[in-house]
Design a protein around this nucleic acid. Structure first.
Length: 281
DNA sequence: CCACGATCCTGCTAGC
DNA sequence: TGCTAGCAGGATCGTG
């Protein structure tokens, strides 16, 4: 499930390869994925790629933008002459392009293409004026960005104001942007906090540990180029490596890396929740 | 207003 | 072996 590190990795790739390209044509293969008029962006040049939480925005030179949320299984893959030689898309995660899961193909100049794949079809793509991007409900409601504008004072306020448990709070995009199930689980483990703890019961020391732990796991995820446990690949179709570094996510029954106690998996807040029953309390 | 469940979707897997 | 039920889950919508 793409979260901040995965989407940021995609963003950096798209920024490097898409900027300067002109949009020549758009092939919509599954119409429900896209809203807005595709004609508005034909002939426009890509000027920037931004990430807002787990969302992406491709800005154009005609005051229009393409806003994208890849949700669980979306992939954005660039193919073109800018790709360094020897780099190939993952056969396992992507395969031949376009595939039966390719819902949008953007034809760029110089024969380059941008493919949108999404086998679960949960994602969305919106064509809209750049100035309207901030009013998209998902973007408008986003909380502060970790690694950017989430300082200890802000985080403390968010945690202490909350009535519910800490893990769903971390995953609530309205309160903190970009964190999903993987990095919430691993961050809570790193901070040695039980995911079921009432957020407002955390001590100042625990809040401090938690923000540091979240920053640490997000940075580790970024360094590893994201986690490809599921269908995530970067903008060139390559897998990431953080799935090899999971602390507790997906590790049910395996020994805790700190104490050896088997990692437990429970359903909590409607999500698979992994923790060490000995280290986290 | 908040908490919680259902919903969207399909590939994989556990279990009979 | 072959089928199916269940699971994975981000964000949104509806219900209590």
């Amino acid at each position: 499930m793409p979260e901040l590190p995965e989407v940021e990795t995609i963003k950096r790739g798209l920024q490097a390869y898409l900027v300067g390209h002109r949009i020549d044509a758009i092939d919509i293969r599954l119409s429900k994925m896209l809203t807005g008029e595709k004609d508005r962006i034909l002939g426009a040049m890509i000027t920037a790629v931004r990430r807002l939480g787990k969302g992406l925005v491709i800005d154009l030179d005609n005051a229009f933008s393409i806003a994208i949320h890849i949700k669980m299984t979306g992939q954005l893959i660039y193919k073109g002459s800018k790709v360094p030689t020897g780099i190939e898309v993952s056969k396992e995660k992507v395969g031949r392009l376009p595939s039966s899961h390719t819902h949008l193909v953007v034809a760029l100049d110089q024969g380059a293409k941008l493919y949108y794949n999404d086998f679960r079809q949960f994602g969305w793509i919106k064509i809209l004026p750049t100035e309207a991007v901030a009013d998209v409900p998902f973007f408008k409601a986003l909380g502060p960005e970790p690694l950017k504008d989430l300082d200890l004072a802000t985080f403390t306020k968010i945690v202490q104001r909350s009535k519910g448990p800490i893990k769903p709070l971390l995953m609530d995009q309205k309160r903190i942007a970009g964190i999903g199930n993987i990095y919430a689980n691993d961050g809570l483990f790193r901070a040695k906090i039980d995911p079921r703890r009432k957020a407002s019961s955390l001590t100042g020391d625990e809040i401090q540990r938690l923000i540091s732990a979240i920053e640490e796991v997000l940075k580790k995820g970024l360094e590893a180029g994201g986690s490809s446990e599921w269908s995530y690949v970067n903008a060139l179709g390559q897998t990431g490596g953080y799935q090899k570094l999971f602390l507790v996510y997906g590790q049910a029954g395996k020994p805790c890396i700190d104490c050896g106690t088997p990692i437990e998996k429970i359903q909590f807040g409607g999500r698979g929740t992994f923790f060490c029953p000995h280290c986290q309390f």
